[in-house]
Design a binder for these strands. Structure first.
Lengths: 209, 209
DNA sequence: GGTCATGGTGCACACTTGTTCACATAATGT
DNA sequence: ACATTATGTGAACAAGTGTGCACCATGACC
């Protein structure tokens, strides 16, 4: 047979995909069992232990995959940036499309933010933090919003991420998948972000607490 | 013995409390079993069926309880409103305090937004919708933000709720419970909401999409 | 006071779960 | 070529799971 490492990575991937399949079917990750994931991966239960200590371990590796997915998302959105007049609307549209195409990862992310072990929540949160940091970097790179001091910049980034994250949950749950309601949703999301950035643009340094 | 109905309500409440206890211990609701909840309620497993069809049924009733908790929260915050100069900061502070005092309900809410059955997610979401509606009503009652048309008013309300919901998740997870980090958190949350409402105040009707 | 419905009990069943252990098989290193 | 070591197998166990059933005690009702 082929290289042994490759074979190992292959079944390992099978296990991770099996877990994702589980959450894609609407089940919660925390109700997944070792036997179930093994069965779906077409492997005997005990083989699981050759790859992961337990399901939390597997989840952490899924977060790593999620991390890659998020980074690619950022790259794509950054590259396709064209007209600065429509940054928000265009970014939102691309974002939504990406979420739909990578649905299962974002479901997993949503579940893990409130679901898993403290460690897993921590891991997901730190991914989002990274996202926020990048956003701040972008805003500074183009010298947008010079009226915001660094602290407010962080607040703005966190708020942006928070809004996107919550919107993502709703988008994933959008039962009516018609083009119309998708469009409505994107409009609403754009409006929300616009509201935030109008606020940022009009922020005065000395705003009281 | 006492009235039979009372007795029934009592064990029913025991079951619901047992479920809450489970999530309070950091477990996810979806990994709760009938036998476990029965054991914690000090009752035999089959007795469960005298009160609920299954665990989803119980969860729905928990959402009803959650509903009451949320309504009381609104009432409290509305009553204690004093200085309009500090509405946001004061409301945030009261809100955070309430979340901490009713911790378990908000954990359950967080879990259920991304966790449970479609039906349960729906139920929780509709509670939040109600919250948003009330917020809009308040804003209109005091004729604040007359520059916003009804559609933008809804956007603003949704955004507010979204921000609060996401912040709640973080607050519940705040490992460091020191007064200092609590204070920092409340400040950040206040800043975020201020940003939003500065945006709302400066919103022009004709803002492009 | 006798009947009945209600809510709780205990047992039973078949099924799933995590984890162990001895074993097979085939790629790898020498 | 041979010994080793990594990966997957299968049986086995004790524990936990949902749920059906017969039962029983007792408050409710006429």
């Amino acid at each position: 047979m082929n290289n042994r490492q490759e074979r190992k990575l292959l079944t390992r991937q099978s296990l991770m995909n099996a877990a994702l399949q589980w959450v894609e079917e609407g089940q919660h990750f925390s109700s997944l069992s070792i036997r179930e994931v093994a069965k779906r991966a077409g492997v005997v239960p005990t083989a699981f232990y050759r790859h992961f200590k337990d399901l939390d371990d597997l989840a952490l590796n899924l977060v790593d995959e999620l991390s890659l997915v998020l980074r690619q998302l950022m790259r794509e959105v950054r590259q396709n940036r064209v007209n600065p007049q429509h940054i928000i609307r265009d970014s939102v549209q691309q974002y939504c499309q990406y979420v739909v195409s990578q649905r299962v990862f974002f479901i997993f992310m949503s579940q893990s933010m409130t679901g898993g072990t403290a460690l897993i929540r921590q891991a997901v949160r730190s991914e989002l933090q990274y996202f926020a940091k990048e956003l701040v970097a972008d805003l500074q790179r183009f010298s947008l919003l010079p009226n915001l001091d660094p602290a407010m910049m962080d607040v703005l980034a966190d708020l942006t991420i928070s809004t996107m994250a919550f919107a993502t949950v709703q988008l994933l749950d959008l039962s009516d998948a018609s083009t119309q309601s998708r469009q409505d949703f994107e409009n609403k999301m754009s409006r929300q972000l616009q509201l935030i950035y109008v606020g940022a643009a009009n922020w005065k340094r000395k705003e009281p607490l």
